[in-house]
């Protein structure tokens, strides 16, 4: 009897210990989830506003949108005026998800902006930022980056594509131009990469559309991809304004997904060249 009583006491102890452990784990999980949500907030707060007015200037209009997937993602966009005539635009996608991706996004975004303050060559900016980021990258992370510097006076864009999906230009006559040139691999993967750049002429009425692969790789329950074809169809509808273009594409994606969970971040940045 004594032995049995001891055994049941032991069992009760073990159960109590396990209950305590579970409570502790639950507490840790709640704390971790709160921290992840904080990281997601930080990610979204680092993104500039969707629809800036650039001090009331009328020769350009920009609208951007980032829809974050469930976890902290790695998509980012940025834009800033470098002087009276030069507008820099950036869209990127960091490999992986989570807090580490969020940190890399923050560092990449900051390095690009700081270099662009004194260097107007996107090739040179990208080469420098890559060197900086690749030198200390023990986890083999990387980020795709499209960076364009639009000269609003000369009506041209100098751009560098580092492993990112091609940016599109919807011309006033409805022609869709794909900027297919790749100027180098993703940023931070390898040191000593010398990136190139291209220049494209722009006209009043041209619309630049930069985006991440969360758009083309959005899928429905039948695992069909939204794909470039559907994106082109969406873009080719009559143009109203940049906000309408981006919101319409986002709506097209949501309708296409029909309730499937959004798997990846979705980012679109759209610029109209105006009079």
């Amino acid at each position: 009897m004594g032995k049995e009583a001891n055994e049941s006491k032991d069992t009760a102890n073990i159960v109590a210990q396990q209950v305590q452990k579970i409570a502790l784990l639950k507490e840790q999980m709640v704390r971790m989830e709160a921290e992840l949500n904080l990281a997601k907030d930080i990610q979204l707060n680092m993104i500039p506003i969707s629809h800036p007015d650039f001090g009331g200037r009328s020769d350009v209009e920009l609208y951007a949108k980032l829809i974050s997937a469930r976890e902290v993602g790695g998509d980012f966009y940025d834009y800033y005026l470098l002087d009276d005539n030069k507008l820099a635009i950036v869209v990127g996608d960091v490999s992986g998800k989570g807090v580490a991706a969020g940190f890399m996004m923050a560092v990449g975004k900051a390095l690009l902006k700081s270099r662009a303050a004194t260097d107007f060559s996107t090739a040179s900016i990208m080469s420098h930022v890559n060197q900086e980021m690749a030198a200390n990258n023990p986890d083999y992370m990387f980020t795709t980056v499209f960076m364009g510097i639009i000269d609003l006076a000369k009506k041209e864009m100098t751009y560098t594509n580092a492993g990112h999906n091609p940016t599109l230009i919807l011309q006033k006559d409805g022609t869709l131009v794909k900027l297919s040139t790749l100027h180098g691999p993703v940023v931070a993967a390898m040191e000593d990469i010398v990136y190139g750049e291209s220049v494209v002429s722009l006209s009043v009425g041209d619309v630049i559309f930069a985006y991440t692969d969360g758009i083309t790789e959005a899928h429905n329950s039948a695992l069909e991809l939204f794909s470039e074809t559907r994106l082109f169809d969406s873009l080719k509808r009559p143009f109203k304004n940049v906000k309408d273009t981006v919101e319409r594409i986002v709506l097209d994606i949501l309708l296409f997904e029909r309730g499937e969970e959004q798997f990846d971040d979705i980012t679109a940045l759209c610029v109209e060249i105006k009079e």
């Binding site: 492993g163 990112h164 999906n165 180098g184 691999p185 993703v186 993967a189």
Partner: peptide
């Protein structure tokens, strides 16, 4: 190709 991995 798009990511540039085929270059590195």
């Amino acid at each position: 190709d798009i990511s540039g991995f085929s270059q590195i």
